Simulated assay, not measured.
Amino acid sequence: MQDVEVKFAYKAGFRRLWLALSLLWLIGAVLVVSEYREGALQAFLLFGFLPVIAIYVIGVALVWIIEGFARADR
């Protein structure tokens, strides 16, 4: 039998998960922020946009950690 190397696509999987959750979050944030008369942009940036960026950064960090454990010691 041949040795077949299987590589998991952590980056692509996390990115797709982040994109799907971010779209849902942004839609919800727009619906909630649309009720504000004043400061709607600030509220959207704080409660809509900032969490999306934070989750992406956390996902990148998790992939970096997982790839670090997956690599053989040199």
Rank of each mutant, 00 (worst) to 15 (best):
Q2A: 08
V52P: 04
L19M: 08
V32N: 09
V33H: 01
V52K: 03
R16C: 04
L31N: 04
L26D: 03
I58M: 14
W18E: 07
R15E: 11
I53K: 07
V4M: 12
Y56T: 04
L50C: 12
A9I: 00
Y56S: 11
V4N: 08
R37G: 15
V60H: 08
I65A: 14
G28P: 10
A12D: 13
R71T: 09
L23Q: 15
Y36G: 01
F47L: 05
I27P: 00
A70L: 11
P51K: 14
S22Y: 04
S22M: 12
W64S: 12
A40T: 14
I58Q: 05
K7Q: 10
L41R: 06
A70K: 08
E67A: 01
V30M: 11
V4C: 08
F47P: 01
F69N: 02
E5V: 13
Y10G: 02
F49S: 04
I58F: 14
S22H: 04
W25Q: 15
G28N: 09
Y36E: 08
A43S: 11
R15L: 15
L26V: 09
W25H: 15
E35T: 15
A43D: 02
I58K: 09
G68L: 03
F69W: 04
V60I: 06
G28S: 12
L46N: 03
G48D: 07
L19W: 11
D3M: 03
G39L: 09
A9R: 06
Y56R: 15
W25D: 05
V52G: 08
F14C: 06
V63M: 05
F47H: 10
S22C: 10
F14H: 09
I27C: 08
G68C: 03
Y10T: 02
L19S: 13
A43N: 01
V33I: 09
V6S: 06
L45R: 06
V60N: 02
D3N: 07
L41E: 11
P51E: 10
G59I: 00
D73H: 07
W64C: 01
L46T: 06
E67Q: 10
L24W: 13
G68K: 02
A70N: 15
I58T: 09
I55D: 01
G13V: 12
W18S: 01
R74K: 13
L62Y: 03
R15C: 05
V60D: 08
I55S: 14
K7V: 12
V52N: 01
E5G: 03
G68I: 01
I53V: 15
L19V: 04
Q2S: 13
V4W: 12
V30S: 11
V33T: 12
V6L: 14
E38D: 15
R16Q: 15
A40D: 05
V57M: 11
L21S: 12
L41H: 04
A40K: 11
D73F: 05
P51C: 15
D73R: 14
S22A: 15
R37W: 07
F14S: 07
L19H: 10
L46D: 01
I58N: 06
G48E: 06
